[in-house]
Design a protein around this nucleic acid. Structure first.
Lengths: 159, 159
DNA sequence: TTTGGTTATCTCAGGACTGAGCGATTTTAC
DNA sequence: GTAAAATCGCTCAGTCCTGAGATAACCAAA
């Protein structure tokens, strides 16, 4: 004699909630692989992100770096401080803007990222190998659309 | 006279790395929506996860709860402590196992989650509205496959 | 029963990061 | 040319959470 549970969510919401769950779990799982790799080199994911960004883009203003790896303003200062203490990154003055600073890789930092990046790439490929190449490309397309749309409707991003 | 950059990654790895990026960004964007909603009720995402899980599954052993919301063993103790202090959750002894504890919602906790869940569901639906219903179902399928496979190849998960 | 191995939770020290607010600089408007 | 507004990075107090170890309870075998 049990009564049916109340319809707490419409079908549309049910699908959306399921998508949220699998998205979070997939991201966490893949992240787990990546972290395990990165941690063996004594780096946090955020530190690795900084090194990777500088490796591929060259010197970057701290603000650009911040937006790229998605940390707070205090976070990027903290990260660059720590990487500087490790001798992997340096700050350079920006000639056009006295407020801004460039972050650049030192020789040692460049050598480190060049050494560990190939392993990282292989590990990522392995982590996503559950999908075929075609499926990966489908997923990329869907996730890019999803991410863009979600960003656009975020309140604080007025643009 | 610039030489071509060295092939740092194979095409397979390039696709995998791109997938990692869009996956992380999509998860972060959707997470942003959810957090903004949850924070207005004075809850952290992890706290909300606990309430949501108990709301839908009923009383749960702490260990099951821990695996469900993906926190460390210390984390689940901390979360249940804090929710207990807020009067939203209680611990109950487990008759069959003296080591284990159930977490259950209090009246107040049940009332809170019942009140805020509909808004949450609507917000999630809005956050993923950049994809059509069909696309959402494709994404769910792909992400579920991806997550499962990634978990299975994670070293510490032997099963 | 006793012993040892597992499992479930808790304790606690510490780390990564946030976010509000600050000074310094640049840009814009008058 | 100067005052107001915006932008950049930094400081710092505080938060959430991790992870290694401790404690207690269960279970199987001798």
């Amino acid at each position: 004699m049990k009564s049916a549970p109340p319809p707490v969510a419409s079908p549309r919401e049910t699908v959306a909630l399921k998508l949220l769950v699998v998205l979070s779990r997939a991201a966490a799982s893949v992240h787990g692989h990546v972290m395990a790799d990165i941690a063996t080199h004594g780096l946090t994911p955020a530190e690795f992100g900084v090194l990777e960004a500088l490796h591929h883009k060259g010197p970057l203003l701290l603000g650009d770096l911040q937006r790229k790896i998605l940390v707070s303003s205090g976070g990027i200062t903290f990260l660059v401080d720590r990487l500087t203490a490790k001798g992997l990154v340096e700050r350079k003055a920006c000639p056009e803007d006295g407020r801004a600073r460039y972050a650049t890789l030192t020789r040692k930092g460049e050598a480190l990222i060049a050494r560990i990046f190939p392993t990282h790439a292989a590990r990522v490929a392995e982590a996503v190998a559950g999908l075929t190449r075609t499926e990966q490309e489908q997923a990329i397309h869907l996730l890019r659309t999803l991410g863009r749309a979600a960003d656009a409707t975020l309140p604080e991003n007025s643009e």
